[in-house]
């Protein structure tokens, strides 16, 4: 796992990876219209990153992105989520108030009752929260997988005891 798999696997996973990311971002962005949302799309993107990790090995991956950067990304998502909730307290009445619904310019349109048309410019604060939670889930799940793979990849069979790198 530390050295990666064969060249065929590496090439195919590198080719497939952008499509997985695009699909996950689509699920995140259309979370208020179609089945999906921040958690599901984030899980899809994190699975794509985990596929890249398995194909290329954890040494290569930790050279591309460190777990500290992923941790910062995850904290950014969490702070954005709480900040959106606090803006509901500022502009509206309560915590988690959907303060953007009903305005004219950003995600503010209201679909008609029982309308089946997908209008992207609806949902109020929901798409922004979807993006925040999606960023949080991508960074969190990939940080978990990356740290576990990197910490256990350098162990050989009898090397578990003395803790050599």
């Amino acid at each position: 796992m530390s050295m990666g798999m064969s060249k065929i696997v590496k090439t195919v996973s590198s080719v497939v990876f952008p499509f997985i990311v695009i699909y996950g971002l689509y699920i995140i962005a259309h979370g208020h219209l179609t089945p999906g949302g921040g958690f599901q799309g984030g899980a899809v993107v994190a699975s794509g990153c985990a596929m890249l990790l398995v194909a290329h090995g954890s040494i290569w991956t930790i050279g591309k992105i460190r777990e500290k950067q992923l941790s910062i990304l995850e904290s950014t998502g969490a702070v954005a989520f709480i900040l959106l909730a606090l803006l509901g307290l500022v502009f509206g009445t309560v915590f988690f108030k959907n303060f953007l619904v009903g305005n004219k310019f950003l995600f503010g349109e209201i679909p008609g009752y029982l309308s089946r048309v997908a209008n992207f410019n609806t949902g109020g604060v929901l798409p922004l929260m979807n993006f925040a939670v999606g960023l949080k889930v991508i960074a969190g799940l990939f940080a978990i997988v990356l740290v576990m793979a990197y910490a256990t990849s350098t162990f050989k069979k009898g090397e578990m005891e003395d803790g050599k790198r």
Binding site: G37, F95, G108
Partner: peptide, 20 residues
Amino acid sequence: QTEVGANNGVTSVVFDYRGF
């Protein structure tokens, strides 16, 4: 659709009605 403005009921529950 009238309160949250979203077509997806599950997402409106997750992020609006039960945000906590």
